[in-house]
Nucleic acid binder design. Structure first.
Lengths: 195, 195
DNA sequence: GCTTGCTATGCAACGAGTTGCATAAGATGA
DNA sequence: TCATCTTATGCAACTCGTTGCATAGCAAGC
């Protein structure tokens, strides 16, 4: 069997980067980690419970003032081992799912091509927005004096560099999508006037 | 509610392009359509049955020689209408799922960085292979005299053009991934020697 | 006092997708 | 003859992911 159930592993990585509650994890899955892995809070709570039963994470009750108490999770030795084992196992490249591509091919059988143009423009805007968010995050987190400083390299440098290269992947993806959607719009424009 | 259950719609598009059996559809989902939407034969048979019950497709028993008989499905009026309605509904941009990205960020907490390098190289190879397949398909299906011929445009031209622009999207995606994985490998190389 | 909103956790039901297995007809080759 | 491969269809069980709903504490504004 090859590479399944990655939500556990995404949570382990996130908790290694910084321990936190289910709620905080859900927040992270809306940004940062969420750039390449999505999860809702229900899913996270359910998986956290299972991970706790399996001894992958430890829990600590943290009383808070001005807001409800929380349970702070951190990675246990068993969790660390599980992550390492998964890291060393080969994973299949993701299978792609693009319903926009289905729609584009479906448009050949549609009476109203203008509808698809609007839809493609909506998607283009969404990717443009994401790109702007990613670039702002890069500016915020990965520029400045320490970014290219000389000197001895620490494990924290490695962590930063790896986060950065993943973010660059997100940026490259959004740019590619915007270019492709422009290609789609140009193609649709070539066919629109004739019909 | 916004855009769910797209397998039905992918099947409708494929059957509009050419009627066929569940088995044939499963084959198409390993190439062509499969470039942007995956499905196993069990899933396809189950969904075809539901679509038949809903009156979206018609079935015709086709006896064959030298092999088992098949059921050939084609799109009914209700199916055409269902597809049109889905095409005109907005769909959310796909949420991304890249377990390789999880692994890369996880590598910051791993003792053995060489394992990740091997994994990234495996993925790079897989994307290289897919790119070669796509380019071969483009060469086969979208070059030649009729590709850029002048003259009146038919619905078939539109169908071809739309298939082509979707394929170009796949090509752009694979190229972007290969470039990014090179970036990842270069980043890992910068950190490897130190540790 | 009431509503609205944010933090924080959770259950129940459902739909989507995967995996393993079963069946059956004919083709191919040892 | 027997095993294996390809075409062709399907069931059952399971996991994964989403949606709707519920609860509860505290804050802010009307």
């Amino acid at each position: 069997m090859i590479g399944v159930m990655a939500l556990e592993h995404a949570i382990l990585v996130s908790l290694l980067e910084k321990p936190g509650s289910g709620y905080e994890l859900a927040r992270r899955f809306e940004r940062s980690i969420g750039y390449f892995w999505t999860a809702t809070h229900q899913q996270i709570y359910r998986v956290l419970k299972r991970m706790q039963n399996d001894g992958w994470v430890d829990v600590r009750d943290v009383p808070q003032q001005g807001r409800p108490d929380k349970k702070e999770y951190s990675v246990a030795d068993l969790g660390r081992a599980a992550l390492a084992s998964w890291l060393h196992d080969p994973t299949e490249p993701e299978s792609v799912r693009h319903d926009l591509a289905v729609k584009i091919r479906g448009a050949a059988f549609d009476e109203d091509p203008a509808a698809l143009i609007r839809e493609v423009e909506r998607h283009r805007q969404a990717h443009q927005d994401r790109l702007a968010r990613y670039l702002a995050g890069e500016e915020r987190d990965f520029t400045g004096p320490e970014a290219s400083a000389a000197g001895p390299r620490t494990p924290l440098d490695a962590q930063r560099e790896l986060q950065h290269v993943v973010l660059r992947g997100g940026i490259a993806y959004e740019r590619m999508m915007i270019d492709w959607l422009d290609d789609v719009l140009a193609t649709l424009a070539r066919f629109g006037p004739d019909r």
